[in-house]
Nucleic acid binder design. Structure first.
Length: 458
RNA sequence: GGCUGGGUGGCAGAGUGGUUAUGCAGCGGCCUGCAAAGCCGUGAACGUCGGUUCGAUUCCGUCCCCAGCCUCCA
């Protein structure tokens, strides 16, 4: 399979360092608020990548961290007048709930920063020992000038960075590019004892430490949003390489594009942050997931209400095919074959839109297939391919039933029976009246070969 | 200003040096009591200006537009 590597700026064939154990680290959320759609995109993208890797390789260790130490968390606790622990546990739970609604499977390991303080201190200490860091005014800073390859990931050089610098340089830095590994905490802030006094870790060291703790010195894949390339991942790379005597930290850097909302950037200052839990009130999680997978992961994605509607209708089409095959037998999920055409799309830098096109092709085949054996093959393929994308695993009846639309199913069935009776006696006026009545409630009827079925309008 | 990614039909969105993406929407037909679903057919595109080429949406360069980042920071 091939992945686009940010570091080399090329699509490269993916070879794990150890084929028997693929390692992937993805930057998770800082838990100080509800997840927005921009947080959801990498979670869904790398969920698909993890699913693909798991079927291509015997073992995959996927780590996605929870950042539960951060000044933004401290500020949120202060603002809401509750403890830091309450903030982090509340929003960690909310994050899990939101992702579950989007069909995102749990990673193999979900480390938290607060559980890795000794390892963080150890790593900072080794950076100091190796001459890559220095202490200044109760801070420990990374010495960027000690690492020749600084900038290799984000493709910037020091001169460029300085030219655009618009932030005041902290006086304790030897060089403007140096960044904090450890900083002092006042009594009212969370802190841990360290060789450099009571304090807390800086921004980037946590990811270096947790990747090392769970995956080793060199990892295969590191993922995250494009906005993290600099400074976060650049710094993470510098720390890890320098703490490990120059050993390569990450073999493939994979970054997803960012989301805009109705053509505008999503930002607090614009006031257009879309929370996953709010979107879930408007559309099923599966539709939101499809809307995220409908564009290639590396490109930008403009989020619109229309886009979610289209995703929902696209799922209608796929589930319609499965619904028509409700009586077609399937084999056990472990026996199902995924078409190579479909797999090859995903193997080619996770081309989900192209893979979806294959899935739609199967849906068409399903409608035109002549015999049952053919339909059985198609149904198995659709379910297996869908599973790789985290789609189509619901019972079609549940999808079309609108789950929580608050409909009185018994009442609907009753009206359908009345209409059937009316049709039998050729009282089409009455039959149409009943159909219109249901349509007003958002219920669409379909007269098919073996009776009348209904679905919620999308 | 620097670095990075993107600009494709009404909308979303793949892809390709010359030949159908796909989904939604439109149009015509079939099916249907009528619809819906489905099927068949159909119109419609590659930001700008140049260059390379027999031929470019696809390669190269210019410019324009959109987005992100430019170091502890909302």
């Amino acid at each position: 399979m091939f992945l686009y590597n940010t570091k080399t700026q090329r699509k490269e064939e993916f070879f794990p360092q150890d084929p028997s154990r693929v390692t992937m680290y993805v930057c998770g959320p800082t838990v100080y608020g509800y997840a927005h759609i921009g947080n959801a995109r990498p979670a869904v993208i790398f969920d698909v990548l993890a699913r693909l890797l798991r079927r291509e390789f015997p073992r995959v260790v996927y780590v996605r961290n929870i950042t539960d130490i951060d000044d933004k968390i401290n500020a949120a606790a202060m603002a809401q007048g509750i403890s830091i622990a309450d903030i982090t546990s509340t929003y960690t739970q909310a994050y899990h709930d939101d992702l579950e609604a989007l069909g995102v499977l749990a990673p193999d390991v979900e480390p938290r920063v607060t559980n890795h303080i000794p390892q963080i201190i150890e790593m900072i200490d080794s950076l100091l020992q190796a001459g890559h860091a220095y202490e200044a005014q109760d801070h420990v800073l990374f010495d960027v000038s000690s690492f020749n390859d600084y900038g290799e990931l984000s493709h910037r050089n020091r001169a460029d960075m300085l030219a655009g610098a618009r932030v005041e340089i902290a006086p304790y830095k030897r060089d403007p590019a140096d960044f904090v590994l450890w900083k002092p905490s006042s009594e009212d802030l969370p802190g841990w004892d360290s060789p450099w006094g009571r304090g807390r870790p800086g921004w980037h060291i946590e990811c270096s430490t947790m990747a090392e703790a769970h995956l080793g010195d060199t990892i295969d894949i590191h993922g995250g949003g494009r906005d993290l390339i600099f400074p976060h991942h650049e710094n993470e790379n510098a720390q890890s390489v320098c703490a490990h005597n120059g050993i390569s930290f990450c073999r493939y850097w994979v970054h997803n594009g960012l989301i805009t909302v109705e053509s505008e950037k999503m930002a607090k200052s614009v006031g257009n942050i879309l929370l996953v839990r709010d979107l879930l009130k408007q559309a099923p999680g599966e539709a939101i997931r499809l809307a995220l997978l409908n564009a290639h992961y590396r490109g930008p994605l403009d989020w619109t209400e229309e886009g979610v509607m289209q995703a929902r209708r696209s799922l209608d089409r796929l589930y319609q095919a499965l619904r028509d095959m409700h009586d077609v037998p399937v084999v056990d999920s472990s026996q199902r074959k995924i078409p190579d055409t479909f797999l090859n799309c995903l193997r080619d830098d996770l081309n989900t839109p192209k893979a979806l096109a294959i899935l739609f092709g199967l849906a068409r085949e399903a409608h035109t297939a002549a015999d049952k054996a053919q339909k059985s093959r198609i149904k198995n393929e659709m379910l297996a391919a869908g599973d790789l994308l985290g789609l189509l695993q619901q019972d079609p009846e549940v999808w079309f039933g609108g789950a929580d639309a608050g409909l009185d199913t018994a009442h609907i069935e009753h009206l359908i029976k009345q209409r059937e009776a009316a049709r039998m006696s050729k009282d089409f006026e009455k039959a149409d009246r009943i159909r219109d009545m249901l349509l007003e409630q958002g219920v669409i009827l379909e007269d098919v070969a073996d009776g009348t079925r209904w679905r919620v309008a999308s």
